[in-house]
Amino acid sequence: MPRAKRSMPEKVSVQCRVNGHDATLLDFPMARLLDALREQLSLTGIKEGCGEGECGACSIEMDGRLVNSCLVPVAQAEGATIRTIEGVADGEQLHEVQQAIITHGGAQCGICTPGMILAAVNLLEHNGRPTEAEVRVALAGNLCRCTGYTKIFESVLAAVTVAEARD
């Protein structure tokens, strides 16, 4: 559809809080939050794998809930509190899940890793002691083609052990 023939929407300004900082996004209202965060805030740790909410590589937390940022129009981020992979570590101190993924081989090519970590961290915030079966369910929306998932399960369960020892 040629653009000139239709009245175009204006870009909208969206205020939200991202990884603990106030942020303003300026984009077409139907633009994907994925693109806005990557391009305007340089949060390129959020990955695009499929663009249809199937692979989970673009997973972020929005108001404490895991979402696929490729399926969120930017207009719906107004007032939202967002956490991306860049906001998971505490400065240089990695989250237990991040550390466990390094130690236990839970990342290979790394493209699913940010989304996978968000999904795992989100799980542990709702369920501090998941079983392997629960881990499998929680990560079913995050596809990994490299690892066969086995080492990801090991990583998440190891992170639980580390977190418990710390607490």
Binding site: R3, R6, P9, M30, R32, P73, A75
Partner: peptide, 9 residues
């Protein structure tokens, strides 16, 4: 093209 879609709140 997302530029040709409107979403009002």
């Amino acid at each position: 093209s997302v530029a040709s879609f409107d979403l009002r709140t």
